[in-house]
Amino acid sequence: MNEPLLEVRDLRVGFQTEQGLLTAVDEVSFTLESGKMMGLVGESGCGKSVTARTLIRLLEQPSGRVLKGEVLLEGRDVLSLPLEAMRRIRGNEIAMIFQEPMTALNPVHRVGHQIVENLLLHEEMSAQAALKRAVELMEWVGIPAPDERVNDYPHQLSGGMRQRVMIAMALSCNPKVLIADEPTTALDVTVQAQILDLIKRLQKETGMAVILITHDLAVVAETCDDVAVMYAGRLVERGPVETIFRNPLHPYTRGLIGCLPRLDHPPKTMLPIIPGMVPGLRDLPVGCRFAARCPNQHGNEVLGTRQPWKECGGGQGVEACACFANSI
């Protein structure tokens, strides 16, 4: 098997707060191959965005820190690189797009200028050539009349167009990995479809790998090859999208898929629910973190010890809590 493009091993990230150290991501491991699109799903506070920000070393400072683990990009540990070297990787080999392009773009600079900035930082080219390239990039991501739009300010563009500018910026240096953090959450459903379609098309054209962070399982089902499900800072299950949706093993994954209103469900009937709510990061058990909401019968021992990770073949893996491990 080929060496994966990106490998995350036992990543643990914490934040120093007034209440002490809170662990937002706890021993998360996954790999990503080039040309693949992986969905990272979970509810708010599950650590999906923190994981992504760690990969590109944009953790909030000074409170955020990596406590353990490594992130290998083609064998190099990104987390131990000096800042200068990291700056060459960020935006160049790993790029990121954010949920709200209005806050990610600088409101006082023309969008063309912002794309040019990245090009000049990472590539040897004249300002004129960079501007020409910026127009080409904008055309590539489907912005109409790019030679005029290049002089617009972010507020003159619609939400969908702004997200396209973000994508043009992110892809300007042909990154190997694109991290998309909730790229369509702020958009309408028709524009969401356009942007997801665009990301897929660009991925096919460039062969890059994409990590798509979202809370929307339907988006994952439509676009991703693989999916990783996080809950309260831990990875609870991952595998190929088809397998996970057909045969989810972890009770959380099952619950999450089950509680979606779907077009093929009978309307106005009770939806299956996951009782309770997403736990806070304080006072989490060492063992299974889903136990308090889990529909399965379980003893107290699942709370006291970390439940083992189990590979189930076909790329599917799950945190095999004792409450269901025997039935796998």
């Binding site: 969908g160 459903v189 524009v191 969401q192 379609d197 077009l263």
Partner: peptide, 25 residues
């Protein structure tokens, strides 16, 4: 029709080619 076509379905085995709406609201 366009709106319904744009809804992502939580069913990976039923992915479909979408007829994408162009432009913004």
């Amino acid at each position: 029709k366009a709106l319904l076509d744009a809804i992502p379905q939580a069913n990976p085995s039923r992915r479909h080619e979408r007829k994408l709406l162009k432009g913004d609201v």
